[in-house]
Amino acid sequence: MREFLKIALNLFLISLASAAILGLVFMQTEKARKRNERTRMEQAMLTYVTPTPGAPAPAGVAFRSIHRYLVEGADGPVRSAIGYVLPAQTGPVVLLLTPEGALEKVAPITGDHDLEDEAERDRAVAQALGGKVRLTYTDSYAVAVKDGQRLASFIRGRTQGFKTWVHMLVALSPDNTVRGLDILEQEEDPGLGGDIGYEYFRNQFMGRTLEALEKLKVVKLPLPRDYRMCLERSRWPKLDVGADEIERMCQTHRDDDIYAITGATISSTRVTAGVKKLVHAFVTRMRAIDAVAAREGIALTF
């Protein structure tokens, strides 16, 4: 029995020491890690700020974030609403809309909060709405602005892939044409569904207008060789083909459907469906926000 206790205590102490070390290191590094992630995200977004992806972004671009929540029990026992955390000229506000898009309430967020930090933002929103609400975070959007002009908007969302969630970043131009698709995190099979992260697949979404996107389908056909050359933009400098030749190749296939990845039809269709859904939801929501803001005279900073 004594031996037994000794062993248990020994292992407990080792685990405790290890947990203490890990905790300390985590506290030291977590802030820096989050900051890195944010910079990485902003860099990814900067490539899509100009109409030609990858062109140097103009100076002075600012990113404004929009966060969407489902709010239950706001201002009454069972009243559900959709809450948007928006940057207004007077400071951040929570805009509560009914599911139909009518204004329910505007609540300013007071105090100094880092709204990019999820836990802190949840607290700030709850505080602004008066405490007794249940919040469910759903989506985040970002709008790139310069001198009050919208340059691009970004959707950070996820969709069910073949194996698990595929996290992606969809960049839209101000007229809601897809400017680019980045796959942020995915765990599809390498060599098959994993190819969704490759240029030849994700760049097929470039330049799809809102109307084209609604009708977009996935076809199980081999990707034409010239289209592939057009899609693999990072290889352009290596090709001994002129810019007008590439332009022509892209024009030929501009209205093609999405070519599924060989051996990964499900990953391809799911990502396509995800992009369609995310863009559709974003456009509808932004229209609702813009309409309410214009009607109620809320000056937003994007």
Binding site: I21, L22, V25, T29, E30, A32, R33, N36, R40
Partner: peptide, 12 residues
Amino acid sequence: SVIDMVLAAYVP
């Protein structure tokens, strides 16, 4: 875990 966290924070 320590090197995982340190690398993530300081040399992304």
